[in-house]
Each structure stands twice: as structure tokens, then as C-alpha cells.
């Protein structure tokens, strides 16, 4: 998977993309928080949330297949947890049992909820990053009282991220050409050598960058683009989605 795949749709044009970055950050963050805060969403709430993933995707013109494939990132951790969870619950109606393992209605139900929650939260995050370019996201973070030094470091980090990523990929390709496998401990040591060479290169690059910045008279602050003010569409979206979340919460509690 190449890195351009990660936010492939971030710079398209759609009503969703045209919204202010602050609106989208607030909207998707509150949706994720809602998903994480409701312990066991009812059928109506789950259906509305799952539907909203696809609705936002459709408005932003992001293909459903892309959303599904990208959300596979949760499989390693979630799959492991859900499996161990589904196989070890003993409450509820028993379907199958073997030694310490058992498949029960309660176990299946709770692991399905867990999977659903993890999937919905990750889908909202994928929608956020695919409708908001990262520089706008960083700019929006400044409005939410994130320490300015952290935002500064974040944008500096992002600037060099893809450069070093490409370099690491090139080194890996070169290694694969020279080396076709072998004892895995040896492979780990090889990665150690690659990390060394990457670190020394990037240390020297950081020294050069710092000297260049200081000789240009950098005083420790970054100048950002002015933050755009909220427009009618932003306020409309915020009011509608805020009301929607409150209604969902009321349905859940009742």
C-alpha cells in the first residue's frame, strides 16, 4: 500500500470538502466520542450511525469500497480481541463448546457490538482525513486550544514524513533485491542497520534545516494561513449534526 492511498480523496471538490476544517473536525470528533461513549448502542442508533457513514461518504463522493477497504486497518487488533471475546464468554445460550472455548449468544452479541463500534469510529476518522487536507486540519487544531508548540512540531513532522517514508521504502526494496529471507533474528538486525542509516541521514538533514532556518532569521514561530471564518453552510451543518447527536443520545437513554 503506498502512502498516497491514505488520504486519496482529501483534495477533491464536494459540499463536504468545501466546509470549514473546524466544522469537520468538530463534527467527526463528536461522532467518534459519541460512538465511544455509548456502551451498547440500540438497533436504531447503530443503524442511524452506520447509515450516516455512507451518507457522508456519498456527499463527499468517496466510494464505499474505498471506505470498507481502508477500515480493514482495525482487523489485526479487533479481530484478535473479538475472537478471544466471542470464544470465552460463558453466559447466555450455548451453541458449541470445546474445552475452555464456548460459543454463546451473549458472546456473539457483545463481540458484534465491539466490532461495530470500532468500525464506525474508524470510518468517521477516515471520512475526516479524506475530506480535510492535513495542513487545514493542523490549522484547525490551533483553534481548539492545542498548545501551539505541539501544532508547530506536528506540521514540521508532517513536512518530513513522506520524504523519510519514501526513503525507508527505497531501502526496503533494495534489501529485498539483495536478500530473500532467512532467519528472522537476522532480519531484525538488518532493520536495525536500516534504522541507523536513516537516523544518521535525517540527523544531518535536521542540522542543515535548522542552520538554514536560523540563518533566515527564524524566531521560533510558524506563520500559518489565516483561519477562514465559518460560513452559513458550516453553521447549518453544526446545528443539524449537533441536534442529531442529542436526539440519538436521548433515544439511547430512553
Amino acid at each position: 500500500m503506498h502512502h498516497s492511498y491514505l488520504d486519496k480523496y482529501a483534495r477533491r471538490d464536494s459540499p463536504m470538502h468545501r466546509l470549514n476544517a473546524r466544522t469537520k473536525l468538530l463534527l467527526f470528533t463528536s461522532l467518534v466520542v459519541f460512538v465511544a461513549a455509548v456502551p451498547r448502542p440500540g438497533l436504531v442508533v447503530s443503524a442511524v450511525l452506520a447509515l450516516s457513514v455512507f451518507t457522508f461518504g456519498a456527499i463527499a463522493k468517496i466510494p464505499i469500497s474505498y471506505l470498507i477497504i481502508r477500515s480493514a486497518v482495525i482487523i489485526p487488533f479487533t479481530g484478535f480481541a473479538v475472537l478471544s471475546f466471542a470464544l470465552t464468554m460463558t453466559e447466555g445460550e450455548m451453541y458449541w463448546q470445546w474445552g475452555p472455548f464456548a460459543l454463546t449468544s451473549e458472546g456473539i452479541g457483545r463481540s458484534a457490538y465491539l466490532l461495530l463500534r470500532a468500525w464506525m469510529a474508524v470510518s468517521f476518522m477516515i471520512l475526516l482525513i479524506n475530506t480535510t487536507p492535513f495542513n487545514q486540519l493542523v490549522n484547525a487544531l490551533r483553534c481548539f486550544r492545542i498548545p501551539s508548540i505541539f501544532v508547530l512540531l506536528l506540521s514540521f513532522f508532517y513536512r518530513y514524513l513522506y520524504l523519510l517514508w519514501d526513503e525507508a521504502e527505497r531501502m526496503q526494496r533494495a534489501r529485498n533485491l539483495r536478500y530473500f529471507g532467512g532467519f528472522w533474528k537476522k532480519q531484525a538486525a538488518l532493520i536495525g542497520n536500516m534504522v541507523t542509516s536513516l537516523f544518521i541521514k535525517s540527523y544531518e538533514r535536521a542540522e542543515r534545516a535548522q542552520l538554514a532556518m536560523q540563518s533566515r532569521g527564524w524566531d521560533g514561530r510558524l506563520r500559518y494561513a489565516r483561519i477562514e471564518s465559518l460560513r452559513g453552510a458550516d453553521i447549518f451543518t453544526l446545528v443539524i449534526s449537533g441536534a442529531g447527536i442529542v436526539i440519538l443520545w436521548v433515544i439511547q437513554v430512553l
Partner: peptide
Amino acid sequence: IVRRIPIIGMTAALVFAAQMLNFP
């Protein structure tokens, strides 16, 4: 701060890139 920002950002990018290198 002025002296250390490039190296912090660069090391973070390096750790991120190094995490791409999987070993079996």
C-alpha cells in the same frame, strides 16, 4: 525550542517511517 524543533520533527518522521519496516 528554536534549536531542537527540526531534530524532534525529523526523529518523529524517522520513527514513523521505521515502523513501516515489518519483520516476520
